[in-house]
Structure formats: C-alpha cells, structure tokens
Design a protein around this nucleic acid. Structure first.
Lengths: 209, 209
DNA sequence: ACCTGAACACCGTTCAAGT
DNA sequence: ACCTGAACACCGTTCAAGT
C-alpha cells in the first residue's frame, strides 16, 4: 500500500471519473470513490487537479464536448475556473476538414451526428455542459467547420454566427430532450430517436438557407 | 426557538430553494442552508419532502419547467423518483389557448418566448432539467398547444410529434447555449441573445412546414 | 514530483422525542 | 401534524509528512 508513484495521470483520472458517472450518475462521483477506483488515496487526485473537484469537472466537460480522435485529452495545467484545456495531441481535425470537397450539408450533418453520438455516450455528464463552455482545439475546429459550411450555403454577415449557434443549440437540445425522456414508457428506441434528430436537423438547415 | 409550526409549505420551500440557487448556484443549495433561510431546522423540510433532496429537486424542476400563472406550484405528495407534481390551481392555460384565433406561428412563437423567459429566469436550476421530465398540467398544455399549431401548419402523422420535439429541443438548447456562454467576454447582450433565438426559431419553423 | 494519512468543517438522512 | 436535536456515515479540502 505504500507506493508513491501509482501511475496516475489526468487522462486516467478523467476516464475513471466518466466510468463512475456512467454507472452511478454525476452525484455518485466523489473524490474518495474516484480514489478507490484508481487504487489511490483520494488526496492524490489533488496533485493532478490542484483546484479540486471543480477543475476536474471542467476537464471532464472539455473531454466530453470535444469529439476529437480517441485519446486526445486536453492537457493543460491551467484549465482554471471557467476555462478548459487547450492542447490536442493527434492530428488537427480542422485541417483534415479543410480539404473536404463534399457538399456543405453533408459535412454539417456528419459533424452533427458525431457530436450527438459523443453527448449520448457520456450522457451522465451532460448536465455539466449547462454551465461550462470549455475552449479546446475541437471546439475551435467545430466553429470553423460550421462557419465554412454555412458560408458555402449562402449565409453572410451575422447570419453565419447566428446560424451556427442555432445548429449547435439544436444538437445539444435534442440530446437533452432524448436523455430527459429516455426513462418514460413510450420512449423511442435509438432508431426512432435518431430519426427525430434528423427530422429536426433537416428542417433547421432547410429553413436556414 | 421552540415553535412547532413555522408555517412551512412546499411552495415556500421551493421558492426559497430557488432563491438560494439564484444566489449561490445549485451546488450551494444544502438542506441545512435551506433550513436556515426558512428559519427552521433542516430536518423540518423532510416533513414536506419525505424522500429528501431528490424529491425537492423534482419539485423544483416541475416548477421551473411549468411556465404557468404565478403561484401555481404543482402540489402532489407523490412526485416520487422521476415523477413531478400533477395539480395546478389556477385557470387552465390549455383552455385559455383553445379559442385563440391568431395564426399558428404567432401562438407557437409566443409560447417559445414565454418558455425561454422562464428557463432564463431560473437558469441556475437549468441543469436539473437534463435528467428530469416532470409531467404537469403545464407540460400537457404545452404538448397540446404545439400539436394544434403544427397540425394547423400542415404537418400530419408522426411529423407532428417530431416537429414538436424539434421545437422543444431548440428552445431548451438555445437557452443552454446562452447560459453556457454568458460569462465570456464577447457574450451577447439580452437584445442580441433574443435576436439569435428568434433567428433560429424562425428558420426552424420555416423548414418545418 | 508524487502520494499518504490525519484532521476539520460540512453534508444528507434516520430516529426518537417533543408539542 | 409539525418540528426539534442528537447521531451516523459520508463528503471536499488543507496540511504536514513521507519517499
């Protein structure tokens, strides 16, 4: 029991926290329980997140809201109150998208589906997103992607930003709506849930252009 | 200090809880602090919410998500796990709306603005909505209103339900988006925030019909 | 640098007791 | 019926100490 290097890392901590959240809900995540799962004293976590649980929540939010290539945990010692991580580690998804020659609506819809899938995968942490908007390479890439697509669609001026906000809002809202109602008796299965998501997304895009 | 009837009620408790949440955030709401604010021992709250904090959270969610006439607190001893209150006390907003002869998009937009205002007013409790979908007279009235409006707009079959979900999703998502980013330096003022909300809502309605 | 272990203030909830 | 007050298990975090 008396080791002094348990191989802890921000990434391991975040992943284990997400695992606990998936199993017991956000309220079931305590520093002590997280320490147990990592086979470490709870206080060891504070060496990696000196600002405590709030900073851990910020990092979890940045991870969940960044549908980047797997393993790309934002690593930044300064994701202080209100901020998120900053550094990615694999190739830049914005650069990969820049040369994409497919129609704007195909690119946008593909992004929306990926984002939706990510939020659903970590739906237990979804409520963290309500009061945190971390800035990561992934969120910057998303903004660039949405702006390029909507500009190509014919929007200009402030309509580009407003359109991007509308698309982003719809995606988050649709996932929240699904998660909110998923325990009801007449809840749709994943096929119908996705069909509803697409129905609204198509309508929004149609009305936007 | 030795009174045994402090005039506590579910409504007073919910209102005081909302006041604490507005001032110190959801994490700042504790049963002990709530008791202090109500000038009562924390344990007195359990007489009105026997299932504890979880039941209180459900009741708060039902209150926030029910933009009914002021003072209409859902009063139901059985808003158990996952459920909300059931009984309203003032006149039925669905009945009031039934004879509304204005165009469908006007009625729908008016509802959306009222709902948005309600969610913004209690934005500190917004994250409670993510995992709770209370059923109240107000939510039933909302469903009826949306279905009537979208049917009048020409939708039919499952498109009515899908369209209603899309509108609902967009409204919640837009408020979440605004609250998420409201502490940033380039955050829009309320005028611009509302303009963005309208921009997306109009686009969605345009694409829906 | 990385982790432990005791300590402190606070928390949700139970339960027996008061009126 | 409505509220109190002590008690219990648990929590986040600080701090001095170990390696």
């Amino acid at each position: 029991m008396s080791r002094n290097n348990a191989g802890l890392s921000r990434e391991r901590i975040i992943l284990e926290a997400l695992h606990i959240i998936a199993g017991r809900g956000l309220g079931g995540l305590s520093m002590r329980r997280l320490g147990d799962a990592l086979e470490v004293e709870a206080m060891a976590i504070y060496h990696h997140f000196p600002l405590g649980k709030e900073q851990l929540f910020n990092a979890i939010t940045a991870y969940v809201a960044s549908p980047a290539p797997q393993g790309t945990v934002p690593i930044d010692p300064a994701d202080l109150a209100g901020g998120g991580g900053e550094e990615g580690e694999t190739e830049d998804p914005a650069a990969a998208e820049a040369g994409d020659t497919r129609p704007w609506d195909v690119r946008l819809t593909e992004w929306a589906h990926a984002y939706r899938a990510r939020l659903l995968e970590f739906s237990g942490a979804l409520s963290l997103l309500v009061h945190r908007a971390p800035q990561t390479p992934s969120t910057a890439a998303t903004r660039a992607l949405l702006h390029r697509a909507l500009t190509e669609a014919g929007l200009s001026g402030q309509d580009v930003q407003r359109g991007a906000d509308a698309v982003h809002s719809y995606c988050v809202g649709a996932v929240v709506h699904q998660v909110r109602h998923q325990d009801e008796e007449d809840a749709p299965d994943e096929g119908e849930a996705r069909a509803r998501f697409d129905f609204g997304l198509r309508a929004l895009l149609r009305g936007l252009v």
